[in-house]
Write a protein that binds this DNA or RNA. Structure first.
Length: 238
DNA sequence: AACATGGTCAACCGCTAGTTA
DNA sequence: ATAACTAGCGGTTGACCATGT
């Protein structure tokens, strides 16, 4: 096993991709696929190395890619998966459809790691209790998703405001660890996809939709109907 | 207004595992 | 069996932007 020769890098362009290069790459892959990354740039007429083309496609140009802010659920999923998988970003990315390992890695280093560290400090030396950390993070998530919704539950004609603990008790554990699953309910699928503003040039999220009253019903429905599934079955046990 | 600092993220680098001849 | 080669992975870098002083 030897390393690939780097001599071909000579004369190759580096740095940010231009829209023109993106278009060439997209067009070529649509026509011919990407069975051979090394040969692709030459055939496509790009002055880039195969590695660079592959990275650009996987991390940015792929049509199924989901760009923009991570949802609280996605962040929690990353935290949970990182707890069990460590820095295996590609394995974590495999559980988050539309997210790339690079993006997840960036989010971890820029947001989540810091957040966990802060939580560690706030816990007065109880730093080794990862469950405690996770619970605090969950609380943050629950606040963002649940508390905004008015949680008046009608019970025998008596209006009763649920406490945080009550709400938490309703939340199935899998809600926090499972990737949002798509069931046969086409309406739900449409709602979910509708969160992505496809009209945006960079497929960014329209965050207002996450907390929009009209969509809150969807989130609540998702929340309460979540069930444990045989998730992460391919994750080896340690 | 100008500069310093910190955060974000696209892209690159170096390595390993898998495949092929 | 072995060397050559490719794809993919994780770590790191650096440009750009926002915010603070």
């Amino acid at each position: 096993m030897g390393r690939a020769p780097c001599c071909e890098k000579m004369g190759m362009k580096r740095g940010p991709w231009t829209p023109e290069e993106d278009q060439i790459l997209i067009n070529y892959i649509h026509l011919y696929g990407h069975s051979n990354w090394r040969a692709l740039p030459k055939h496509a007429g790009l002055l880039r190395c195969g590695k660079s083309c592959r990275l650009r496609w996987i991390n940015y140009l792929r049509p199924d890619i989901k760009r923009g802010n991570f949802t609280p659920q996605e962040e929690q999923t990353i935290i949970n998966l990182h707890e069990s998988l460590g820095n295996r970003w590609s394995a974590i990315a495999a559980k988050l459809p539309g997210r790339t390992d690079n993006e997840i890695k960036n989010v971890w280093h820029t947001h989540l790691k810091k957040r966990l560290n802060n939580n560690n400090q706030n816990n007065d030396g109880d730093t080794k209790d990862i469950n405690k950390i996770t619970k605090i993070t969950r609380h943050e998530v629950e606040e963002s998703v649940i508390v905004d919704a008015t949680f008046d539950i009608s019970n025998n004609n008596e209006h009763e405001t649920m406490s945080y603990e009550d709400i938490s008790a309703l939340v199935d554990e899998s809600f926090w660890s499972d990737v949002v699953s798509v069931d046969n309910n086409e309406k739900k699928m449409e709602d979910w996809e509708g969160l992505v503003d496809r009209n945006s040039e960079r497929f960014s999220y329209n965050n207002s939709k996450l907390y929009n009253d009209d969509d809150m019903e969807f989130w609540f429905d998702l929340l309460t109907s979540s069930r444990r599934i045989e998730a992460f079955s391919d994750i080896p046990e340690f």
